[in-house]
Amino acid sequence: MFKIVEKRKLNDSVTLMSVDAPFVAKKAQAGQFIIFRIDEQGERIPLTIADYDREKGTVTIIFQIVGKSTIELSEMNVGDCILDFVGPLGNPTEFGDAKKAIVIGGGVGCAIAYPSAKAMFKAGIHVDMIAGFRSKDIVILEDEMKAASNNLYITTDDGTYGEKGFVTEVLKRLLEKDNTYDLIIAIGPVPMMKFVSLASKPFGVKTLVSLNPIMIDGTGMCGGCRVTVGGKLKFACVDGPDFDGHEVDFDELMRRNSFYKEREANDKNHVCRLGEKFNG
């Protein structure tokens, strides 16, 4: 059993939690993920390790409420226990010998991109961060991202905060102004990662994306997480989750991620109605 020791709502649909998991905390590195299962009936759900405290033995996750399991998790409180919490899985993000990087987060992807920005910034790498949100009311982690970068650019789709528009526009502007960047890390919805990769390709800057296919075991045993990268079959849980964005078949990933949509949408309605009851 893994005890929740901290819980903070970052916005209406994004929650931060720290969980007592000393073995995971001891080994965790930026870019890796965990898989949790709330209870005996639960699914195995992957979430990126947003932060960790080796001394306290805690691991922080930041998640967006999208369906049944994330709703259930968001309803748990400090002191409650999660049945299973396994990790650290996947490979840490490889910064190589980058000297100047752009880190891009989209929505809750900012939470996943943030630890990489922080790790690089701490290692003395110049980090420009671009964080994109739909609207002002869902902006998360602004102070944290600011503290982990040389420059932070925030965009909103509707222009209610920061710059109006998409992250790709800021990216193009930065690259056009000064093409001395040697690494781009983009994490967010699959379409965002696809368009960032398309935008950066002409500039020839290495672009890492963190893929989020459907997973079960996270150890290379089910093949459910397979993605096509550079024409080759890869298992995102053990070969990734980071891959070269210029090589990833994003359209295939989007198709495969839609597999359980119908059934999960039904479940979700079910849960949401329950939620209404609870929340008044």
């Binding site: 073995f23 995971v24 080994k27 299973d84 919490f85 396994v86 990790g87 650290p88 899985l89 996270g218």
Partner: peptide, 8 residues
């Protein structure tokens, strides 16, 4: 929940 090679 102990993936050897990862956690230890």
């Amino acid at each position: 929940n102990m993936v050897i090679g990862k956690v230890l």
